[in-house]
């Protein structure tokens, strides 16, 4: 035979899934929430999304070039980070601050730790928290939905307001103040269902997160449904806590991680002086992931527990 044959290690058959396809699914799942934000907050929302996505992709491209590594913008992970960052920002935010956030997310949190798969915290979340600490005023200025003048109207988010200010229906539809993507519960759940159906995420993390937050809310005397539907809890539970890179790989690890997120979110909301707790709680649990994984590594099939008698 003249032509050369490929000789490689088995398996010689691979599934059709790829990182790009998974990221594309996440983007599709975020479309309803993005549309909702544009409906509620108008062109400012659209502009913020555009600015964040573009700057994230650009940051990724430039930092890979500078570090002399191959270009990875094709895997669409930078688009996902940009989109998630935008959806976590208040609508009235200065686009320059958003660009700063993108730089923090992609350059500092993601690429400086080795790129996709190596970052130990969620880039979009870390960037949001950096912005929150650096620009507390800008990051805490909320605009009401359908507001005509962004500078004049300042409103309280459902979380900052007294429990019961908004009805459950209002919270589900999301026509109230808040971050771009966190207000419309229906849109977020729709995206979550899509991800589960497409087998991109397992339902363990979002379900356990929401459930444990609900139980914790009952314990500390809050209205569980109100807590779940308001603030960044749903966005966090469905899209941020389920980030592959920064969540446990093992089944029981996912459960422990999600319980931690849920409990911490409610504790922070109730006892810290921040109205919002989802971002901080997920970030904290991100850092614990290696430990959780170590503790929950499953025993191999056929493993027999050694009893004291067996040991010699």
């Amino acid at each position: 035979m003249e032509n050369k044959l490929y000789v490689s290690s088995s398996p010689h058959l691979r599934s059709s899934s790829s990182t790009t396809k998974i990221m594309l699914d996440v983007i599709i799942a975020l479309v309803p929430a993005s549309i909702a934000s544009v409906v509620f907050f108008g062109w400012r929302a659209l502009m913020l999304i555009g600015v964040c996505v573009a700057s994230c992709v650009l940051c990724e491209y430039i930092s890979r070039k500078v570090m002399k590594r191959d270009t990875t913008i094709g895997d669409l992970s930078a688009v996902v980070t940009g989109l998630l960052l935008a959806l976590n920002l208040p609508p009235s935010l200065n686009p320059l601050i958003a660009i700063f956030g993108s730089i923090v997310a992609i350059v500092v949190v993601k690429q400086m730790f080795g790129g996709l798969g190596m970052n130990f915290v969620n880039p979009a979340l870390a960037a949001r928290i950096v912005l929150l600490v650096s620009f507390p005023n800008a990051m805490m200025t909320w605009t009401d939905a359908f507001a005509s003048d962004f500078d004049a109207v300042a409103s309280a988010t459902p979380l900052a307001a007294q429990s019961g200010t908004y009805s459950y229906v209002e919270l589900l539809l999301g026509a109230h103040g808040g971050s771009l993507g966190e207000t419309c519960a229906i849109a977020l759940v729709l995206g979550g269902v899509y991800l589960v159906v497409r087998k991109v995420i397992s339902p363990i993390i979002p379900c356990v997160y929401i459930l444990s937050a609900g139980v914790m809310a009952l314990i500390v005397g809050q209205d569980p449904l109100y807590q779940i539907l308001s603030g960044g809890l749903l966005l966090g539970a469905i899209f941020m806590a389920t980030d592959y890179v920064t969540s446990p790989i093992t089944k029981w690890g996912k459960v422990i991680y999600a319980v931690g997120c849920g409990v911490l979110t409610i504790l922070l909301r109730t006892y810290s002086n921040m109205p919002e707790g989802a971002s901080f709680s997920i970030l904290l649990m991100n850092i614990l992931v290696p430990l959780i994984e170590m503790a929950t590594t499953p025993k191999p099939f056929g493993f027999i527990k050694q009893t004291k008698g067996d040991k010699k």
Binding site: S17, T72, D75, L116, S202, Y244, I249
Partner: peptide, 10 residues
């Protein structure tokens, strides 16, 4: 490409 820690192998 880079491992994204998705857990599909697990």
């Amino acid at each position: 490409t880079a491992c994204i820690h998705c857990g599909k192998c697990v």
